[in-house]
């Protein structure tokens, strides 16, 4: 069940995209999600698609992973697309059956929505597959830094994120162990009706919850013993390095946004 999770699955590599500064990648991905809403005609969507496909190519990651990223959301996408097709009113009617009207505008809208979903998923997949979770938290911490001025606990948020990410595999292992231990005692996971399935989760959830508390306490003790006093007066071991190719990427995003603004109707 864990293999399906795309989040936090980093694929090591040494491509152009891999070597980008995580801040550039994070800002780019967020910016992309914003500007995708500027696109509203064929030309703009073709432009965005070319841009994303170039990024996919540059990341040197097999397209299989991107298709897999779309799969879990396919029903949501199809549902939205069908609603768009059926309920967009338009002038050029192509098909009519009782109350169901399919217009050219509706179809076009459906295709656009589909593209929008797929492109956003592709873009965020590039981000998560080419960036180590650790660098991602570093990037988040850096980008949140201005918020420290308005009393947002940036260091604490970053520490929480990095500890959480570091414990994901550990807790998954433990979940697996508890599941097996409870199975050995006769609990059937994922069988029966919804109510039975929910009930079977309890003997998994409660031990996991309790052991997380123990872990938290031991970790806090160990941190304190190693002189952790909070964010103040700390130096950082990891340092992000912004080089010319990162600026290049930002320029590319700028040009893309400008082109979208010019070409949109």
């Amino acid at each position: 069940m864990m293999e399906k999770l795309i989040f936090g699955r980093y694929i090591p590599g040494d491509s152009f995209i891999h070597r980008l500064d995580p801040r550039a990648k994070l800002m780019g991905a967020i910016w992309f999600i914003i500007i995708i809403f500027l696109a509203n005609n064929w030309l703009t969507y073709v432009l965005l698609t070319v841009f994303v496909l170039t990024a996919v190519k540059l990341s040197e990651i097999s397209p299989k992973f991107f298709i897999n990223g779309v799969k879990p959301l396919i029903w949501l996408i199809l549902f939205t697309v069908i609603l768009q097709i059926l309920f967009t009113s338009g002038s050029t009617i192509w098909f009519r059956l009782g109350p169901i009207v399919i217009s050219q505008e509706g179809l076009l809208n459906g295709v656009f929505i589909f593209m929008r979903f797929v492109l956003i998923i592709f873009m965020s997949t590039i981000l998560t597959l080419t960036t180590m979770p650790l660098s991602l938290t570093d990037a988040i911490e850096y980008l949140l830094r201005p918020l420290a001025a308005v009393k947002v606990p940036v260091h604490e948020i970053a520490l929480m994120l990095s500890i959480a990410l570091r414990f994901v595999p550990t807790l998954m292992d433990e979940t697996e162990k508890i599941m097996n231990a409870q199975r050995a005692r006769g609990i059937d996971f994922g069988e029966g009706n919804v109510y039975q399935q929910m009930k079977a989760i309890v003997p998994l959830l409660i031990p996991l919850f309790v052991s997380s508390f123990n872990r938290a306490e031991e970790l806090a003790t160990a941190m304190e013993a190693r002189g952790y006093k909070g964010g103040e007066g700390r130096t950082k071991y990891r340092q992000l390095e912004w080089v010319s190719r990162d600026t290049m990427i930002m320029v590319a995003f700028g040009l893309l946004s400008a082109a979208l603004l010019v070409l949109r109707t």
């Binding site: 650790l134 500890i163 570091r166 872990r215 031991e218 970790l219 160990a222």
Partner: peptide
């Protein structure tokens, strides 16, 4: 400390 997992703070 005793438990090697619970005192490992860093990601690497």
């Amino acid at each position: 400390f005793q438990n090697p997992d619970n005192q490992f703070v860093g990601s690497t």
